[in-house]
Amino acid sequence: MLYDIVIEPFVEFGFMRRALVACVAMAMSGAAIGVFLILRRMSLMGDALAHALLPGAALGFLLGGLSMPAMGLGGFIAGILTALAAGAIARFSELREDASFAAAYLTALALGVLIVSLRGSSVDLMHILFGAILAVDDLSLFLVATTTTVTLTGLAAIYRPLVVECFNPGFLAAMGVRGSVYHYLFLALAVLNLVAAFQALGTLMALGLMLLPAVAASFWSREVWSMVAIAAPMGLVSGFAGLLLSFHADLPSGPTIVLMASLFFLASLLCGTRHSLRLRLARPRHLQG
């Protein structure tokens, strides 16, 4: 019985297996990216960045049709350009960085929808906006797995300077280290992950599997590494449960997966061991001296 519900869909259907592998890979690297996005106070900018992939992906679609490498490459270039442009605008004008990010991504989003509608149908547009994890083919699976490998090794390599750049950038500068180098390396990895996630979850929700587990983990842990260690399995379980639920209840898979991650967030908000509502409401007796 349990076997029929939990295991069988993956044994029976190749597309479910591929979707699961994609979710596992995305959850592992996405958790780490999400944690750093939160620590850099860039959660909303990450979202803006995800939307900014659209015109690039749309151009890829225009030239190569619904092909993952073409759309992924286009999206990656568009994401990097947007991040650089927003950073440059913020530096050279008085505009705050969040405002310049918002301006850049709204422009990109509108441009993207326009380009897709030039040739594609509304089905194609839906596909790009909301993704299609059940249509993941071997090539895109390879791209997602490569992204995870590059992200995890890359983040491990720049871990310490990146953490200090978030925590106390002035100290890093006083030590003669250019923190912006690590900032941009991190942004490049973030864009790479968004590209990997966008094909499965679409540009609108690409950030869901990165950010929600990371936010949830922040209610449980007090170090950067343990936040990542807690967020990754939450993302994994969200992907697994979301796929099953969407299979059995015939729901669209992307939103179901993201909502599963939202459940983790809500549960952590209520019951977490740090700053959660439970602690706020229960007012546990204070400790001795």
Binding site: L39, V163, C166, N168, G170, F171, A174, S218, E223, M227
Partner: peptide, 18 residues
């Protein structure tokens, strides 16, 4: 070697570090 103690406002004091 130069050591520098910044003003506290320049540090993210909510950062999860020991």
């Amino acid at each position: 070697r130069v050591a520098y103690l910044p003003q506290q406002a320049e540090i993210d004091r909510s950062f999860p570090i020991s």
